[in-house]
C-alpha cells in the first residue's frame, strides 16, 4: 500500500478532481468560458443523434483495428531483428527508433510526399510492379489505410519495450530447444512468444487506448479538416473541434465519457479473453 501511495495521492489531486469535473461538465451546457449550467442528459441525447459522432467512431474503430495489430507485428519483428549480436546493431537500433522522435510536423509533410498519388514514392514503387497505386490521402477509401501504414512506421517505442522484454527470455530455454532440434520459427512461437506475452499484452492495451485517442497526425495532414470527405475525421479530432473550436466543452466531455466507456469495455474484453494466453513467470496466482 505504501509503495503505491504516490499514485493514490496523484490520482486524487491531479487526476481525480479533473476527471470528476469532466464527468460533471458532461451533464452541463459548458462553453468553456462561462460557468457550466446543468442540463442533465442533454449532451448524451445529442450524441446519439449526431451523425458525425457515429462517423468518427467508425473511423476510429477502423483505424484501431488496423494500426494496433499491424504496429505490434512490425515492432515484434523489428525487436527480434535488433536483438541479434550483429556488428553495428546500435546504429540500427537508433535508426529504427528515429521515426518516433521526428516532430509530427516534419513527418507529416514527408508522408504526404510518400503518399502523393502522382509523384509519391509509394505509388512510384508500386508502379515498378505494374500496379496502378490508389489515391491514398486524396481518396476517401484509402486515406485510413494510408494513416495505418504511416503508424506502423512510428513503432519505435513499442519496439524498445519488446527489445527490453526479450532480455527476460531465459537463454537455456533456447539451448534446450536447440538440442531438441526445434527450428527458429518454432522457437519463436513456443518460447519467445509466451515469454513476451506480458509485453505484447501491454502493447495491445496501450495501442488500443492510444488508437482510441488518435488524431494529431491526421489533423496536421488534413489541415484539421478530416478530409477527404470526413474519412479521416477521428473521434478525438471531432472532440477537439467541439472543445476548442465550437465552444462546446460540455458536449466534448460527454463524447470523452462515451469514448471512455467504449475503451473500458474493449479493455476488459481483452483482459478477460487473453488472460489464459498471457504468461507471467513471476506471478503464481
Amino acid at each position: 500500500m505504501l509503495f503505491t501511495s504516490p499514485v493514490i495521492v496523484g490520482l486524487l489531486l491531479f487526476t481525480g478532481y479533473p476527471i470528476l469535473a469532466s464527468l460533471y461538465y458532461s451533464f452541463c451546457n459548458f462553453p468553456g468560458l462561462r460557468p457550466p449550467v446543468w442540463i442533465g442528459m442533454g449532451n448524451y441525447l445529442q450524441l446519439i443523434k449526431d451523425p458525425l459522432v457515429t462517423k468518427s467512431l467508425l473511423n476510429t474503430a477502423a483505424y484501431a483495428a488496423g494500426s494496433v495489430p499491424a504496429g505490434i507485428a512490425v515492432a515484434f519483428v523489428l525487436a527480434l531483428l535488433l536483438n541479434q549480436p550483429v556488428r553495428g546493431i546500435a546504429v540500427f537500433r537508433t535508426i529504427f527508433y528515429l521515426p518516433s522522435i521526428v516532430p509530427a510536423v516534419a513527418s507529416s509533410v514527408l508522408w504526404l510526399w510518400v503518399f502523393n498519388p502522382q509523384y509519391g514514392l509509394l505509388n512510384g514503387v508500386l508502379g515498378l510492379f505494374g500496379i496502378n497505386g490508389p489515391g491514398w490521402m486524396a481518396d476517401p477509401v484509402w486515406a485510413k489505410p494510408a494513416l495505418i501504414i504511416m503508424s506502423t512506421w512510428g513503432v519505435g517505442g513499442t519496439m524498445i519495450i519488446f527489445l527490453a522484454g526479450l532480455q527476460d527470455v531465459p537463454r537455456e530455454m533456447y539451448e534446450a530447444a536447440e538440442i531438441d532440434g526445434a527450428s527458429d520459427l518454432q522457437q519463436t512461437a513456443h518460447i519467445t512468444l509466451p515469454f513476451m506475452s506480458p509485453h505484447i499484452f501491454f502493447a495491445f492495451i496501450m495501442g488500443l487506448i492510444g488508437a482510441s485517442q488518435y488524431f494529431t497526425q491526421a489533423y496536421i495532414m488534413t489541415g484539421g479538416a478530416g478530409s477527404p470527405a470526413n474519412s479521416t475525421l477521428f473521434f478525438a479530432m471531432y472532440l477537439f473541434q467541439n472543445a476548442f473550436h465550437f465552444f462546446k466543452m460540455g458536449y466534448a466531455c460527454a463524447m470523452a465519457w462515451l469514448l471512455f466507456l467504449l475503451t473500458l469495455i474493449a479493455t476488459i474484453v481483452v483482459f478477460k479473453s487473453t488472460a489464459r494466453y498471457v504468461y507471467y513467470r513471476g506471478d503464481n496466482q
Binding site: V109, L112, Q118, A138
Partner: peptide, 16 residues
C-alpha cells in the same frame, strides 16, 4: 479527376 488534382496540392497547403 479529383484525385489527380489533389495530388498537386495534397497537404502542401499551409506548411511549405
Amino acid at each position: 479527376d479529383i484525385t489527380r488534382i489533389n495530388s498537386l496540392t495534397a497537404g502542401f497547403g499551409s506548411l511549405d
